[in-house]
Amino acid sequence: MAQLSRTEVEEIALLARLHLEPDETTRLETELAAILESFGALAAANVEGIAPMTHAVPVDLALRGDQVEPSLSVDDALRGAPKRAGDVFLVPAIVTGKSE
């Protein structure tokens, strides 16, 4: 059975911006370990001489021409914003300091 420490679960939750209650962390320790276990089957497979496959469909990347098409209106662009200030998205400050 693959193991996952409590700290690792907490780190993963932080990366995913998930808030977990202590009992949820405990439950996820077990559940994530089971998921890892399933994927562990892949590690056991013999892939000697087989090129890594990152995409299931064998197609090359399609390219677009360098043509500009009309943008969304500012109102449409901001329609999904939780908050706006004039024409900009308004979000809680992330870094104290200057603009970048």
């Binding site: 399609a62 390219l63 677009r64 021409g65 943008s71 004039g86």
Partner: peptide, 26 residues
């Protein structure tokens, strides 16, 4: 340009929007 006047569903990361790469950038 005026703020947020040069966006589209892909730039905004809206559900279902898919990226297609610009040949000129390549």
């Amino acid at each position: 340009a005026p703020p947020n006047s040069l966006t589209d569903p892909t730039v905004l990361g809206l559900p279902g929007a898919l990226p297609v790469f610009n040949a000129a950038a390549l």
